[in-house]
């Protein structure tokens, strides 16, 4: 055993602080960077983030476990996706626990909402908004920094989790992913980041609109619940009410099907699940109804990654558009708000 001298003489302490002082940068950091740095450290230190991180990490490990324990049975002869063995880590389930991609579509919104719901109104309630605005920075720095910081946190978190799943999977099944599988996973993660960014911006919008953090949090959760539960029910009602008779001409039936599909695509979670399932299941060839003529003669082979990306392009564009619209609304709302003390 080493003998450790635990007593500190005052000289060594003074010296330590002096070196710390010397190590400090003498060059000024751009104010926007200062803001982003502070926001990121705020997010990472906050309890809500730590709690969500634990939940997400746990569910992620849980889904990884179920997919790994079932992966042996997953390979069937003549499976068009046999080449994409590795992607099954993200989509496979035995029914007891949802797969990783379903977990992300479920918990992602919560993550986004929790990172943004108190962005502006908590600054206002703490009385720090007018103090910040009295500094020589542009007003939009604050909202941009909030958005950028939360987006950074989300991206780092999702990439870390995605790569963690990949790494653990690689260790256990002993197979490395092919380049295409790797890029499919990367695109899946990028799409997830956009999806979470949409919910983040929605909650930032609420945080600009509502003065109370509780109100904006509840408003965000209400929208989330609406899209996950009630929206599907409403679509079903409309579907039943407008269903053409089964003897109607095929064009009418097809038109109705397409209409219903487009209605469900109002929901960002539909856009996300369509996009991710196409990215993670290369055998998905179309996201709409196909007629017998279209299917006839098709070889049940997986799509190359470029074609899969083309297929989900509208969905991804839709998600980005929703995100941008929410951000633009909150930006305008914030710029027009009068800064008053508390």
């Amino acid at each position: 055993m080493h003998n450790v001298n635990l007593t500190l003489d005052s000289d060594s302490v003074v010296e330590a602080t002096a070196t710390k002082q010397r190590k400090l940068k003498t060059k000024a950091i751009h104010p926007f960077r200062v803001l982003v740095q502070k926001e990121i450290s705020d997010q990472v230190r906050s309890w809500k983030f730590i709690i969500l991180l634990c939940i997400i990490a746990l569910t992620c490990l849980g889904s990884l476990y179920t997919s790994l324990s079932n992966i042996g049975h997953a390979i069937k002869p003549n499976d068009p996706e046999a080449d994409f063995f590795f992607l099954k880590l993200f989509t496979l389930t035995d029914g007891s626990l949802p797969s990783y991609s379903v977990f992300i579509s479920f918990l992602g919104p919560l993550l986004g909402l929790s990172l943004g719901f108190d962005a502006i109104n908590s600054e206002r309630n703490r009385g720090t908004l007018s103090r910040l605005m009295a500094q020589p920075i542009h007003r939009d720095y604050l909202i941009n920094a909030k958005f950028l910081a939360a987006l950074t946190v989300i991206s780092v978190l999702l990439f870390a989790l995605g790569f963690l799943v990949m790494g653990i999977g690689m260790l256990i099944i002993g197979l490395p992913p092919t380049a295409e599988e790797f890029w499919r996973v990367v695109f899946f993660i990028i799409i997830s980041v956009f999806y979470v960014a949409f919910w983040l911006n929605l909650s930032i919008l609420f945080s600009v609109k509502f003065r109370q953090t509780a109100t904006s949090a509840l408003a965000g959760i209400a929208v989330w619940l609406f899209f996950t539960i009630f929206f599907v029910m409403i679509i079903n009602l409309i579907n039943k009410a407008t269903m053409p008779s089964q003897y109607a001409p095929p064009a009418v039936i097809l038109g109705h099907e397409n209409l219903m599909l487009n209605l469900t695509r109002i929901s960002p979670s539909t856009l996300f699940s369509e996009a991710t399932s196409t990215m993670l299941m290369p055998s998905v060839r179309s996201l709409g109804p196909l007629t017998m003529q279209q299917v006839q003669g098709a070889i049940p082979s997986p799509l190359p990654i470029g074609q899969s990306l083309l297929l989900v392009w509208p969905q991804v564009t839709g998600l980005i558009a929703l995100t941008v619209v929410c951000f633009a609304l909150s930006y305008i709302g914030f710029m027009r708000k009068e800064i008053r003390s508390r």
Binding site: L24, Q135, P136, I137
Partner: peptide
């Protein structure tokens, strides 16, 4: 220090 840096002071100056 946060406010000082928003005003363009370097970390050393700010401290």
């Amino acid at each position: 220090l946060f406010i000082a840096q928003l005003n363009g002071l370097s970390p050393k100056e700010a401290t």
